[in-house]
């Protein structure tokens, strides 16, 4: 079992409320329990084929995918129904209870993030944290302090192991 909760070092103090470190097993179970999860996949997954593989495996367990940046290039033919959207716009729409979502089926309740630049995602998460009630889970290589739950800072190989464990628990 991978411990993904140890290194939660952050670059700066951004507020009193910071992400609770989470282990893959718990993260997996929470994703499974969500009524309307959405996995937001950033372009950084394109830097590692294995990351794409794991992301697709999570999506195939029934988690809808929002592809931000140009991550869609690796997801478009994977039969997972990934839809492109700009992550900043997505952060805005997620806070709108009248938004019917990428698939028209209504608002989401749990948002999972993978494959994003640390500094960029933390900003998007700052908006979601402060202005919505959504639960956010960062299963990134870096600790995302503005998520509700986040992995700590991980080495690449440990991150891949952690993703395997999430897949097992979905």
């Amino acid at each position: 079992m991978v411990d993904t909760t140890k290194n939660t070092q952050i670059y700066a103090t951004w507020g009193r409320k910071t992400a609770k470190p989470v282990n893959p097993k718990v993260a997996g179970k929470m994703i499974s329990k969500a009524k309307r999860p959405l996995m937001v996949v950033g372009s950084e997954i394109l830097k590692d084929d294995k990351l794409v593989e794991k992301t697709v495996a999570i999506a195939k367990k029934g988690v809808p995918v929002a592809a931000t940046g140009h991550s869609i290039t690796a997801l478009v033919e994977k039969d997972i129904g990934a839809k492109y959207i700009n992550v900043h716009s997505l952060g805005h729409y997620l806070g709108d209870k009248n938004w019917s979502g990428l698939d028209g089926k209504g608002p989401y309740d749990t948002i999972i993030f993978i494959g994003h630049k640390k500094y960029y995602l933390n900003q998007v998460l700052a908006g979601i944290k402060n202005f919505t009630d959504l639960k956010t889970i960062a299963i990134e290589r870096h600790y995302m302090q503005n998520a509700t739950l986040s992995f700590g800072n991980l080495k690449p190989e440990v991150h891949l192991e952690a993703l395997d464990e999430i897949i097992e628990n979905l």
């Binding site: 951004w14 507020g15 009193r16 805005h92 700052a126 908006g127 402060n130």
Partner: peptide, 11 residues
């Protein structure tokens, strides 16, 4: 075009 705030600091 609504403002979308993403605070750098919560304080």
């Amino acid at each position: 075009y609504q403002p979308v705030y993403t605070p750098v600091c919560d304080q």
